[in-house]
Amino acid sequence: MIARFDYIAAVILFSIGLYALVVKPNLIKKLIGLNIIETSVYLFLIASGDVRLGIYTNQWAASNVIDNPQRAVQGLEPMINPIPSALVLTAIVVSVCVTAIALSVVVKLYQHYGTLDAREIASLKG
């Protein structure tokens, strides 16, 4: 269990983020919560690419080693899987974009309402 401390950290981070997203009234804090949730998922995913800790075993790793057919044939030596890291990189780019748009929307909302309190910004009902 202690060997999977990074998964536990991811779960703790996720809970913190969800708490901030749901409970905090401030829009900026909600966004920070969203970012923490995303970070926790990225942490989990990168950890899952790691051979020592990961759920990813070399069962399929053998078929993944494209540049080294010899290794693929042997299928023995485990290696850190680069693909989750590459995917997480793209996901980070996406979260940067979402955060940028969300912050600009928050700026505009502040301009309209003069506050960032989500309890006061509630014109949509029903």
Partner: peptide, 17 residues
């Protein structure tokens, strides 16, 4: 630039927590 040079914002004196 988009964030730093944003203009036209009113200056409300009300602050949130």
């Amino acid at each position: 630039y988009a964030f730093v040079e944003y203009e036209g914002e009113p200056k409300p004196d009300k602050e949130t927590e």
